[in-house]
Nucleic acid binder design. Structure first.
Lengths: 205, 205
DNA sequence: TGTTTCAATAAACACCGTTCATTAAATTTG
DNA sequence: CAAATTTAATGAACGGTGTTTATTGAAACA
């Protein structure tokens, strides 16, 4: 009975086609430019077909968010490779900032938009962010273990460092840094990298 | 010629009626629950009428954002009154955090949603945030003048402190702190206040 | 009183997410 | 192989959205 296996494989392939179209559209057109109808157009199926593979749009965007977190985790494992936990933390932060500035729309889906989190509301845990989060957590735990950070509790350190980086990126990506007089867009990005390094120096023991 | 004056007054009154309805609806129903048609329903006019007073929905939401910033500035002036600039900075931060946690939807309109910022795109400056921002800026400038912060440049201090507070609030309001194992929602809020105080201690000279 | 100005609106346009009865093809059964 | 059944796909509709425009009717002016 190879038929049911083939059908299941085709089902997965179709779901992946939808996901890829959604991911591409999201990167190129952003949240507002990504609609079920346009995705259906791209994959040359009717809008109703998408609902055979995804419960609703939030469900689909949750998987797109998952892809985005895969990209972030890949960036971490490629760019934060130092054996020194202190240096690795710096590399993670820089990698995180670069990701947020380079992929603003994906970043919004990962950390800002409510839509994909509606799926998580019922669930006990938000698995999409798990790998990337664990990578940061472990590195900070190592730092604290070595006594090179002012923090005593890993959880507090993680939330603080994350919040600082996220605050900078999200204020920048949402154009809120416009209240701050800056000479150029480049200056804003350079400031963000600088302030991150400065923050890390402030929390060093 | 009192007629043109009366007409202008009526025009302003109508615009205010629309604005108040939008503000109330935004607080109670949030961004997604606020539509032109529902606002029109509340004020008992047709949807098209709103477009005689506001160019588009973004234009209206920009004014709602302005009202929200007025509320924040009022909170600042009421809750951050210490003569000590160091203490006043702490009061501003606590006031900011409390505002963000108490009015999540308004906070999103002020610092997250793109919609109201489309109006600012063409403008040279984002005036809505001016007063509240200046209040923070002046206090930090005083702190640096007294040499009680590790920062040398006011701009860098403002962006860093703001980003830290904003990061905490926005991660919390968008449910992203779900990756962090916390025992209760209350614990999350208490953690946010604690980390803010801790951050301020880290940047103290 | 007749004319003009203008605020308000009904109706339409072009989208959106989503549901459901119908169709047609693939699979299983007799 | 033919008939019955399962199932993937869809057309059409529902109720919603922001926005535009031609039309109406009342107020202001001459």
């Amino acid at each position: 009975m190879g038929i049911s296996e083939r059908k299941e494989r085709e089902k997965l392939e179709m779901k992946e086609r939808i996901l890829n179209a959604a991911l591409t559209m999201f990167i190129e057109e952003g949240y507002e430019g990504t609609s079920i109808r346009k995705i259906a157009d791209v994959i040359e199926y009717s809008p109703a077909t998408i609902y055979l593979y995804y419960k609703d749009k939030d469900d689909l965007l949750y998987d797109v968010q998952g892809e985005a977190f895969d990209k972030l985790y890949t960036a971490f494992t490629k760019e934060a490779v130092s054996k020194s936990s202190r240096k690795r933390l710096e590399q993670i932060c820089e990698s995180y900032i670069r990701f947020g500035l380079t992929h603003p729309e994906l970043y919004g889906l990962m950390f800002t938009y409510h839509s994909p989190m509606k799926v998580v509301d019922d669930l006990p845990i938000w698995t999409n962010a798990q790998s990337a989060f664990q990578f940061l957590y472990d590195t900070i735990a190592a730092c604290i273990g070595e006594g090179i950070l002012k923090f005593q509790h890993v959880q507090e350190a993680v939330v603080s460092i994350w919040a600082f980086g996220h605050g900078l990126i999200s204020l920048h990506n949402s154009c809120r840094l416009k209240v701050v007089p800056l000479e150029s867009p480049d200056q804003a990005e350079e400031l963000i990298y600088k302030l991150t390094r400065q923050f890390l120096s402030f929390i060093r023991a």
